[in-house]
Computed example of a mutant assay.
Amino acid sequence: MRIGIANVQVPFVHGGAEVHAQNLVEQLRARKFEAELITVPFKWYPPQQLIDSIAIARMLDLSEANGVRIDRLIGLKFPAYLMPHPNKVLWILHQYRAAYDLWDHPEFGDLINLPGGQAVRETIRYADNRFIPEARAIHANSRNVANRLAAFNGIAAAPLYHPPAQAERFYGDDAQDYLFFPSRITNLKRQDLVVEALALCREPVRVVFAGAAEAPAYVAAITQRVRELGLDERAVFAGFTSDADKLKLYAECRGVVYPPVDEDYGYVTLEAMLAHKPVVATSDSGGPLEFIVPGETGLVCEPTAPALAAALDALWQDRVRARNMGTAGHAHYAAMGISWDVVVDVLTA
C-alpha cells in the first residue's frame, strides 16, 4: 500500500508536529508500507494567508503521483487534512486553535484582533465542517483534541495515542536536586507561571528549563523577571539540549513540571512516565491530564502561582513519595498499551 502523510511545514521550524509526522512515516515503512511525507509551507499572517492555504490544500491532486496511485492519504494538521483524496483517513493533531478554543484568548492566539479575523475564522470553521467529514475515518491525537472537534464542529473522532520519539531510550536514575521542565519556551507552555511559583515556594525548589525559544520577547520578559525575583540559582534555562542530555535530565530529576494551557497531547508527560518520574500539571493543562492519576502518578493543581508553588513544595519535600509516584507512572504507561503497532493497524485498516 502506498500511503501519503499530509502535513504542513513552517519553514525553518522543527517541533513536535514535525517529529510526529516523520515518526509516522518511519513506523509505516518499518512495517513494509510505502510511505511518503507530503508537506505544504504554512504561514498564518496576514490572515488572508490562512484562506489561501485552504484553497491550496483543496486544489492539490494526491490521488496519484508519477502515474502511480496513492492508495491512502493520512491527514494530520490544518489545512493539510483538508486535501481531497478518495481514500483519506485523518489523525488530527489539532485544528487551527486561534479560530476555536483560543479565539477568546488573544494572549495566546491573535486572530481575534487582526483585520478580517472574524471572516477568516468563519471560513476556517466552514472548511472544517464541510471537508473533515469527507474522510473515511477520523481519529484525534488525544481525547482533548477529539473533545474540541465535537464541541466546536459536532464531529466525532476517536483518540489514538502514540509513543513519544525514542521511547525505548528513556530510563530512570537516582534523583538529583532539581525538577525538569522540557519544552519550547512560549507563553502557551507557561514558563512564566513556574517562575512566579518558584518565588512563592517555601522549599529551595530548583527548576531546569530546557527548550528552544519561540518568541524572543517572551524569553526576555522571563529572564528579567528571574533577575527581579532573585531566582538566578533556582530557575536555570539550559536552552536547546541534545537527545542524550535531555534523557539524562529526565532520568536524574526529582520530577517533571508541565503546566501548559490546554495542551493537545503533551509528549512531556509520557516521557516523564517512561523515565519513572512524577509530573506536576495544572487543572487546565488539557492532554497531560489524560495520563496523570492525581496523587498516584503526579500532582494536579489550579493554574495559579500559589497553588503551583504548593505542589512543587510537596514534590520537593518527600523524595520517597516522588519516587513511588514515578514508579506508578511507569507502570501506568505500560498498562495503557500505547504502541505504534496499534496506531499503524488503525490507520491502515
Rank of each mutant, 00 (worst) to 15 (best):
I5H: 05
A6T: 06
A6P: 03
V8M: 08
H20M: 10
Q22P: 02
V25L: 12
K32R: 15
T39M: 06
W44S: 15
S63L: 00
E64N: 11
N66P: 00
N66T: 10
R69M: 07
P79N: 10
P79M: 04
V89F: 06
L90G: 01
I92L: 13
Q95R: 08
L102G: 02
L102W: 06
W103I: 13
P106Y: 11
L114N: 08
G116N: 09
G117S: 08
A119S: 13
A119T: 12
R121E: 07
E122F: 01
A127L: 08
D128E: 15
R136G: 14
A140D: 12
A146P: 03
A151W: 09
A156D: 13
A158W: 07
P159A: 11
L160S: 03
P163S: 07
L179W: 02
F181Y: 14
P182Y: 04
L188W: 08
K189M: 04
D192F: 00
V194R: 01
V194C: 04
V195A: 07
E196K: 13
V205A: 00
V208L: 09
G211P: 05
G211H: 12
G230Q: 10
L231Q: 05
D232T: 14
F237N: 02
G239K: 04
F240Q: 14
K248R: 14
L249C: 01
G255W: 03
V256H: 00
V261P: 01
D264P: 01
L274A: 02
L274R: 03
V280W: 02
A281Y: 06
F291A: 05
E296C: 06
E302S: 06
P303K: 09
A310Y: 00
R321K: 12
A328D: 08
V342D: 15
V344H: 04
T348I: 05
T348F: 09
T348L: 05
A349L: 11
